[in-house]
Amino acid sequence: MKEAKETISFIRDYYERSDFIPLHEPKFRGNERKYVVDTIDSTFVSSVGAYVDKFEDMMASITTAKKAVAVVNGTAGIQVALRLAGVESGDEVITQALTFVATANAVKYNGAEPVFLDVDYETMGLSHTALKSFLEEHCEVRNDKCFNKISGKKISACLPMHTFGFPVKIDKIIHICEEWNIPVVEDAAESLGSYYKGKHTGVFGQLGVFSFNGNKIVTSGGGGAIVTNDEFIGKKAKYLTTTAKISHPYEYIHDELGYNFRMPNLNAALACGQLEALTGFIEEKRELATKYESFFDELGIKFRKEPENSTANYWLMCVELQNKKEREEFLKYTNQEGVMTRPIWRLMYKLEMYKDCFRDHQKNAEFLEDRIVNITSSVK
């Protein structure tokens, strides 16, 4: 395939590498090693330590949230955020089918059922028009709560995901949800450093959740963060994720079902070093995005750019091919030649455990599933 061959040549030239090139690998250029060694020397390598506090302060500052809470991973963060938003067993949560499986899994961990609505073509995230249509056709408000008239279940949250770091039209989603008394929790796992209308993702809704997995724009090896501008909810998030333990010098008293979702100080130290490099990483990735756009334009392939009113972190960059057959040929050739590419996720309702969940027409989601390919997006 001519286009795939030229893409491989471009990527190898850019990274100046002839060996296997992964999709997105971490880079450790600053204080990461120093902070990790400092943590080891302190012996505070587990869930208590100065770097956990520093990480939370840094995340609050970067996102402008009033409170940030370190957690063991993004999935755990979403699970707790949904509980804090009021999701209970037997409820429904509106989300998108075009997402990583953790989004839907976090809903199920609360005993709730996901409702899969279509995405915007432009943002690849939850469509506000699909949301509005679903609510008007299928839902009603009773006693200040939103209910699905067909299933009879309460819709207790809306969970949009900022796909690949491209912000959804979150203000429109929140406006609609406010009319229907539905709390919004942002799955911002992929969008650290992304802004919508000048405001950081994750702080539009009641809560937002970020991921620091090994392949994210910055990493703690494994980790996540819950952010909120509601100080009461923030304190509750910290309490629940640290086993719901009442503060006491030596007694072990737990008065609520909590979670051992604490980020170890060792991971937090790594994260602090990475967060210090975030601005530089984003600048480099945006420069690469500009080069990709020019390159793929000459090839006649659509490079997906940040949506209107957005400043994206370009965590994972992607191209849109003409059809599924072309996508498969591109994926096969590039991976065989040692340059990792991957398709967008399989839609959630095509997975066995979610096949019976409600979904709408999914016109845009199915179109994108057949055509989107992620390409090498690492910083050098």
Score class of each variant (00 low, 15 high):
residue 7 T to P: 04
residue 13 D to G: 10
residue 15 Y to G: 04
residue 16 E to D: 15
residue 17 R to M: 07
residue 19 D to E: 10
residue 22 P to N: 03
residue 22 P to G: 04
residue 25 E to Q: 11
residue 27 K to M: 11
residue 28 F to Q: 02
residue 30 G to F: 15
residue 32 E to I: 13
residue 33 R to P: 04
residue 37 V to T: 04
residue 38 D to F: 08
residue 40 I to S: 06
residue 47 S to K: 05
residue 48 V to F: 04
residue 51 Y to S: 02
residue 52 V to T: 07
residue 54 K to T: 14
residue 56 E to L: 01
residue 58 M to L: 09
residue 58 M to G: 00
residue 61 S to P: 00
residue 66 K to T: 15
residue 67 K to E: 06
residue 68 A to K: 04
residue 68 A to H: 04
residue 68 A to T: 01
residue 73 N to I: 11
residue 75 T to C: 12
residue 76 A to I: 14
residue 78 I to N: 00
residue 80 V to N: 08
residue 80 V to E: 09
residue 82 L to Q: 07
residue 85 A to L: 11
residue 86 G to W: 03
residue 88 E to L: 13
residue 89 S to W: 03
residue 92 E to N: 03
residue 94 I to N: 09
residue 95 T to C: 15
residue 96 Q to L: 15
residue 99 T to S: 15
residue 101 V to T: 14
residue 102 A to N: 13
residue 105 N to G: 05
residue 106 A to F: 06
residue 107 V to D: 10
residue 108 K to R: 08
residue 110 N to F: 12
residue 113 E to V: 12
residue 121 Y to F: 11
residue 125 G to T: 12
residue 126 L to P: 00
residue 127 S to W: 14
residue 127 S to A: 03
residue 130 A to M: 08
residue 130 A to Q: 12
residue 131 L to D: 10
residue 135 L to F: 11
residue 141 V to Q: 09
residue 143 N to L: 06
residue 143 N to P: 04
residue 144 D to C: 02
residue 145 K to E: 05
residue 146 C to R: 01
residue 146 C to L: 09
residue 147 F to C: 05
residue 148 N to W: 02
residue 148 N to V: 11
residue 151 S to W: 03
residue 152 G to P: 02
residue 155 I to G: 13
residue 162 H to P: 08
residue 162 H to W: 07
residue 167 P to D: 07
residue 168 V to P: 01
residue 169 K to T: 08
residue 171 D to T: 13
residue 174 I to Y: 04
residue 176 I to D: 09
residue 177 C to M: 09
residue 178 E to H: 11
residue 178 E to C: 03
residue 181 N to L: 13
residue 187 D to N: 15
residue 188 A to E: 11
residue 191 S to F: 05
residue 192 L to D: 15
residue 199 K to D: 10
residue 200 H to N: 15
residue 201 T to R: 00
residue 204 F to W: 14
residue 205 G to Y: 12
residue 211 S to Y: 01
residue 212 F to M: 02
residue 214 G to Q: 09
residue 221 G to V: 14
residue 222 G to N: 10
residue 224 G to A: 08
residue 228 T to C: 09
residue 228 T to Q: 07
residue 234 G to H: 13
residue 236 K to M: 06
residue 239 Y to P: 01
residue 242 T to A: 13
residue 245 K to D: 10
residue 245 K to L: 14
residue 246 I to R: 06
residue 248 H to G: 14
residue 249 P to G: 01
residue 250 Y to W: 09
residue 250 Y to E: 14
residue 252 Y to W: 08
residue 253 I to D: 05
residue 258 G to A: 00
residue 259 Y to S: 02
residue 266 L to P: 00
residue 277 A to R: 00
residue 277 A to Q: 10
residue 277 A to W: 00
residue 283 E to K: 12
residue 284 E to S: 13
residue 285 K to R: 11
residue 285 K to F: 13
residue 288 L to G: 03
residue 297 D to S: 11
residue 305 K to D: 10
residue 305 K to S: 15
residue 309 N to P: 08
residue 311 T to W: 01
residue 313 N to M: 14
residue 315 W to S: 05
residue 325 K to M: 10
residue 331 L to H: 08
residue 333 Y to E: 12
residue 340 M to A: 12
residue 342 R to Q: 07
residue 348 M to Q: 05
residue 349 Y to H: 05
residue 356 D to G: 02
residue 356 D to E: 14
residue 357 C to G: 04
residue 359 R to L: 02
residue 364 N to L: 04
residue 365 A to P: 04
residue 366 E to I: 10
residue 372 I to V: 15
residue 373 V to D: 01
residue 374 N to M: 12
residue 375 I to A: 01
residue 377 S to D: 00
residue 378 S to R: 06
